[in-house]
């Protein structure tokens, strides 16, 4: 029984962690390319969740019913993911163009503080959009257990997280590894000047990176709404903090690192909630972060040393 309980917690942790990882990618990609910690990313995800909620109402997805996850519901969710991804991607590109690009050659602190400013602006837009109280996000998927037997619970919502997160991450890895854009991104991340000298349009590559990070954040916002079922204008802060922690834990700048960091955080949070108590979950996550960073300051998959010059 206790083994089953443990397994159940791991399942919960991994599903939650996949969601954290999706959010962490936005931090790690932007950091990887311009060494900026984009503090507004969590609040961008919150804006995505606002749009998702508005769209659920506009499409009448709730009326489609939750007893059966019909084709219409799944198509609706796919559309939500696409639209919110597009929205967050474009907002992210706009912020880069208007706020971060003019500060590209400024000292590092200037864009960092601006990112915090953007975060507050987003939060206020969210406050205007959602109102001050938390809003419940409709349950679009049935609650039935997909696994046989009584022991392990794995519902449609959990499945949803996996069917969205896994393909998106796989696509991202392929994009970075083998497309022209991915090569340009890796070049810019290592040496902007050298990249420009081989003909890479650096500003465009940075914009594309903001778009991709934002798109993944937008997708994450839809999953978050459907999975957690509560959204609010302040959700960006805490979720952003966990996601950012995941990115640092995995080694900020590293895409596989963000994924692993997200999964680790999901697991730690679920296991400490189950075995230590929910109020300690956050403390446990950050305690582990501190311990790991003491022994591996570059994160789990980060690069240990500067390359030879």
């Amino acid at each position: 029984m206790s083994a089953l309980f443990f397994l159940q917690q791991c399942l919960i942790g991994l599903t939650n962690g996949a969601l954290v990882a999706l959010m962490a990618l936005g931090y790690t990609m932007v950091y990887g390319i311009i060494r900026l910690i984009n503090f507004a990313h969590g609040d961008l995800i919150m804006l995505g969740a606002c749009l998702a909620l508005t769209l659920v109402g506009a499409f009448g997805l709730e009326a489609a019913g939750t007893a059966t996850a019909g084709v219409a519901t799944w198509l609706g969710i796919a559309l939500l993911v696409g639209l919110c991804g597009l929205f967050c991607g474009l907002v992210n590109v706009a912020v880069d163009r208007l706020v971060y690009r003019p500060l590209r050659d400024a000292p590092k602190l200037a864009p960092l503080v601006s990112a915090i400013g953007v975060s507050f602006i987003f939060m206020n837009i969210g406050l205007f959009w959602l109102g001050p109280a938390d809003r419940s996000f409709p349950q679009l998927l049935p609650t039935a257990n997909l696994l046989p037997g009584e022991g392990l619970q794995f519902g449609w919502k959990d499945l949803l997280v996996l069917v969205v997160v896994v393909p998106l991450m796989a696509a991202l890895m392929v994009l970075v590894k083998s497309t022209r854009l991915g090569k340009a991104m890796r070049a810019v991340s290592q040496d902007e000047t050298a990249a420009a000298l081989v003909g890479v349009d650096v500003d465009r590559v940075i914009a594309a990176t903001f778009f991709l990070g934002g798109f993944l954040g937008g997708a994450a916002s839809v999953i978050y709404g459907l999975y957690i079922n509560t959204i609010g204008f302040q959700m960006g802060f805490q979720n952003g903090l966990y996601a950012f922690t995941a990115a640092v834990l995995g080694g900020i700048g590293s895409i596989p690192g963000a994924v692993i960091g997200g999964l680790v955080i999901g697991l730690v949070r679920a296991l400490s909630t189950a075995y230590v108590g929910e109020r300690w979950a956050g403390a446990m996550v950050f305690a582990i972060l501190i311990v790991i960073l003491v022994f591996r300051p570059e994160g789990l998959l980060g690069r240990r040393t500067k390359e030879k010059v």
Partner: peptide, 24 residues
């Protein structure tokens, strides 16, 4: 332009560096 200090992409392979040389 072959810049001072080489500025190769040191974490990429030789092949990837050369492919980036032909990025255009």
């Amino acid at each position: 332009h072959c810049p001072e200090g080489r500025r190769i992409f040191s974490r990429l392979t030789v092949q990837e560096n050369l492919e980036l040389g032909g990025f255009t």
